[in-house]
Design a protein around this nucleic acid. Structure first.
Lengths: 220, 220
DNA sequence: ACAAAAGTGTTTTTTATACACCCATGG
DNA sequence: CCATGGGTGTATAAAAAACACTTTTGT
C-alpha cells in the first residue's frame, strides 16, 4: 500500500538568545554524510512515517546539534519549500520550522556545532541560504506576537534589558525602553514582577523582571 | 533508494467570487473513492514525486472540480497539517493551498461539484472541517495585502462595488466606500481607471473600474 | 558628582474608523 | 424628485513612534 511519493524533510531554524553577546543565534552543523559532507547546514531530518512535524524537529535539534531535549522550549511552523532541485539526491519537500533553545541548558555540546548570529550566517548547503533568508522576516514578526516564540526565546523570566536586546537583534532597531515596556504590559500572559535584576557592570538602573503566567510547554 | 516516508497530499481551498450572489464561494466535490466515498471534501491529490505544490494544486482543482486550467488565476501556501490520524488509511501530511478561480470562465462543470459560500460550508470528510476553519482567517488577512490573492479573486479589472462585496464576504463587515477607496489607491500595482461600470438596476452611482498594472501570472 | 540605563509622562505622527455631505444613476 | 449607492472631504479614535525628564544604579 506504500505509494511512491516525495520524501519530506524537516529543516529547523534553531534560535537561541545569547544574552552576553546580546544577539540571536541560530544553530548549524557540518553535515556528516554526502551530499555536502562537511559543509554547514541547518539541522534537518527526514520525516518518519506517521511522525509529527515537531517530533521530527526535536529529533533534528537533539541529533544534529546535540541540544538536550529539555533545552528545547518551543516549536512552530514557518513555510514549506518545494523547489525540486533543492536536494541533489532528488526532489524533496522541506518543511521549515523554528525551535527555540534555552542557552542556559546548553553544555558545550559537540565541538563542530556552531551557533552563529542571525545576521552573519555563513553559506550553507542545499537551499538553506534561501530558507534562512525567507524565514528571517517570519521570525521577526513573531516576536511579541507569538507568545510561544517569545517565551521560548527569552525563557520563563527575563529582564527589560534582554527584551530590548532581543528586539534589536531581530528587527535591527533598538526600541525605546518606554515603548517596549508598554508593548509588554499589554501582552496577555506576561506580567512585570516586583523584582529587579542586578544592574550592568558600568551602572544604570536595574531593569524589571518579567515573567509568563503559564508554563512553557516542554518539548516532549 | 526510495525511502519509506509519510505521503503528502495537497488540499486546496479553491475560492471564487460570485459577483451576483455577492459571496465568496469555495469549491467542494463528493469523493469518488473510499474512504469517505460520496462525502463532500476539499479537492486534494497526492503530491507526485518531484511535483511542485502549485502543480498538484492545479491538478486537484482541474481534476476534482472540473475547472479549466485557464480559469485558475493564482495559488498560495497556507499551512501544513500533520495530525497523523487525519486520514483513516494511515498518516499523511496535508499541505493546504489556496487557489483563486475566475468564475467567468466556468462552464457549468460536472454536476456533483458544488460551490458553497465560505460562511456555509457543510460538513466535509477527513479533517477538512478543521482545515477550512483554520484557513479562513488566513484568507481574510490576505485580501488587499497579498496582490496575487486579491487580483486572482477579483480578476484583472473590477469595480468598487465588487471590492466592497468581497471585503464584506471575507471580513463580515461592509467597509465604507470612502475608506475602501483609500485603501485601494494606496495599493501598489493597482490603479483606478477613468472608466465606470454600469449602475445597478435600481439605480445608484456607477462605480469606478480598477485594474492591476501587471498581468496575473497564469496557472500553467 | 557623573555617566549609564530604565522608567514615567507627554507629544507627535501615523493609521484606522466614522460621519456629513455631494454626485450620478434608475425609476 | 426620490431612492439607491458611490465619491469627496473631514472629524474622531486608536495605535505607533518620538522625546523630555526623572529614577536608580556603578564608578
Amino acid at each position: 500500500m506504500a505509494i511512491e511519493s516525495t520524501p519530506v524533510s524537516v529543516d529547523v531554524l534553531a534560535v537561541r538568545f545569547a544574552c552576553v553577546a546580546r544577539a540571536v543565534m541560530i544553530g548549524i552543523a557540518p553535515r556528516a554524510h554526502d551530499p555536502f559532507a562537511g559543509e554547514l547546514a541547518l539541522p534537518g531530518v527526514l520525516l518518519g512515517m506517521g511522525e509529527r512535524l515537531r517530533a521530527a524537529a526535536l529529533r533534528a535539534v537533539t541529533g544534529k546539534l546535540g541540544v538536550p531535549a529539555a533545552a528545547v522550549t518551543g516549536f512552530g511552523q514557518l513555510v514549506t519549500f518545494d523547489e525540486p532541485s533543492r536536494d541533489p539526491r532528488g526532489p524533496t519537500l522541506s518543511v521549515a520550522l523554528w525551535a527555540t533553545v534555552d542557552g542556559a541548558q546548553l553544555d558545550g555540546g559537540p565541538a563542530p556545532v556552531r551557533w552563529v548570529p542571525l545576521d552573519g550566517v555563513p553559506h550553507l548547503a542545499f537551499d538553506h541560504d534561501r530558507i534562512v533568508a525567507d524565514c528571517r522576516p517570519l521570525l521577526r514578526e513573531r516576536l511579541w506576537r507569538d507568545p510561544d516564540f517569545s517565551a521560548g526565546l527569552l525563557g520563563r523570566e527575563f529582564t527589560t534589558a534582554q527584551a530590548l536586546d532581543v528586539t534589536e537583534a531581530l528587527t535591527g532597531v533598538r526600541p525605546y525602553p518606554a515603548n517596549l515596556g508598554r508593548t509588554l504590559v499589554r501582552l496577555p500572559g506576561l506580567r512585570r514582577t516586583e523584582r529587579h535584576a542586578a544592574a550592568l557592570p558600568r551602572g544604570g538602573r536595574p531593569p524589571s523582571v518579567w515573567n509568563w503566567d503559564r508554563d512553557l510547554d516542554p518539548a516532549g
